[in-house]
């Protein structure tokens, strides 16, 4: 029988040292609140949780969690986490990584963890800036953004973490905004329940070096018109008046107003997060303001065989057939001869 936890059980005694107003505080709070439910749903006790991170502001997170934790080196959180999961598949692994950590220096591990579909939960803190090194552009900084290393504006095209994850055949991708505490909690619980690599892109605000990085979509006055929260099985509706929706116009998504141009509720798409075909999920993940609302919520949630399970299954199959059962057997197998 698993223990019953509250969010306090997941708070460590360490002083949280993020800047006041940093979006990371809210993500930490959401995680601490989500884990009791995850624990109950998966039957995991606190000592079975491991939080792994790389380097960057967000990667301080393991110190603030009263679980096992590994604060590794820049970009390598996913590789360390993969090793932990393979070594002990019964553990529930969480990775905290930033846009620089996961998509620049750790980009290779990011796509390969997803490709393998190892059962870990990745919170990708995307503030579109390098905060800990004090304000250089990141792989998600918008084209033309002025930073300390791009004083005249970047001449680089940013990654969309969603397209990257889905392009690598990701089976779980969700997006949210730091301030959306409730939605973030829902996403984290669903990510934990999903078997495989679950990528959660959290748009976070860097109050010091990129303040307002996503206010154009997250500000209260515009949020409902500029974002759409997708929920599996529900119509893709958004807008303050809940009268806007998404339809497929040929091969493209289009934002429409219900009641205009002959559009009725029946025309609006229903979100199927579980569709194996990632085509529509990719289009949803790539919707960008100002042409389209930015998709939040669980965009894709598909079950597929996980690396850790396939590995263990293979070991069991091979073991069942093996004629060699010990090191001594192996040493004496094959071509051997006796000297008398």
């Amino acid at each position: 029988m698993a223990e019953v936890y509250t969010f306090k059980d997941f708070k460590s005694d360490q002083e949280v040292r993020w800047c006041p107003g940093c979006g990371d505080h809210a993500i930490l709070a959401a995680l601490q609140r989500a884990l009791p439910e995850v624990s109950a749903s998966l039957g995991k006790t606190r000592e079975q949780f491991v939080v792994v991170s790389g380097i960057g502001c967000s990667s301080r997170l393991p110190y603030y969690m009263n679980t096992y934790g590994f604060h590794s080196i820049h970009g390598r959180a996913l590789a360390v986490a993969t090793g932990i999961k393979v070594a002990n598949p019964s553990l529930c692994i969480w990775v905290a990584s930033g846009d620089g950590d996961a998509l620049a220096i750790g980009g290779n591990h990011f796509i390969h963890a997803i490709r393998r579909n190892i059962d870990i939960n990745v919170i990708l803190f995307n503030n579109r800036i390098y905060g800990l090194t004090k304000g250089q552009y990141s792989p998600t900084s918008k084209f033309g953004m002025i930073t300390k290393t791009s004083p005249y504006g970047t001449v680089e095209h940013p990654f969309n973490p969603g397209s990257l994850a889905l392009g690598a055949k990701g089976n779980f991708f969700a997006r949210s905004i730091d301030t959306e505490l409730k939605l973030n909690g829902e996403i984290m619980v669903a990510a934990a329940m999903h078997k495989g690599t679950s990528v959660m892109e959290m748009l976070t605000n860097c109050v010091i070096f990129n303040n307002g990085s996503h206010t154009e979509i997250s500000d209260r006055s515009v949020k409902e018109d500029r974002t759409i929260v997708l929920r599996h099985g529900e119509k893709m509706i958004f807008g303050k008046d809940r009268n806007r929706g998404l339809i497929l116009d040929g091969r493209h998504l289009k934002a429409v107003t219900i009641g205009e141009d002959g559009i009725t509720m029946d025309d609006i798409l229903v979100h199927d997060a579980t569709s194996p075909d990632a085509g529509l999920h990719t289009m949803l993940a790539e919707m960008a303001y100002p042409d389209m609302p930015v998709a939040l919520g669980i965009i894709r949630n598909v079950e597929s065989v996980t690396y850790d399970k396939a590995l263990v299954d293979q070991m069991e199959q091979v073991s069942a057939k093996a004629r060699i059962h010990s090191m001594d057997d192996l040493l004496r197998s094959g071509s051997v001869w006796e000297v008398k």
């Binding site: 491991v50 792994v52 590994f70 590794s72 080196i73 390598r76 590789a79 360390v80 986490a81 993969t82 090793g83 932990i84 999961k85 393979v86 070594a87 002990n88 553990l91 290779n108 591990h109 390969h112």
Partner: peptide, 16 residues
């Protein structure tokens, strides 16, 4: 996927 992941997965496995 690369040499770095080789050792980092091993470090993770050692921790576990």
């Amino acid at each position: 996927e690369d040499e770095i992941a080789g050792i980092c997965t091993a470090i993770g496995a050692a921790y576990a």
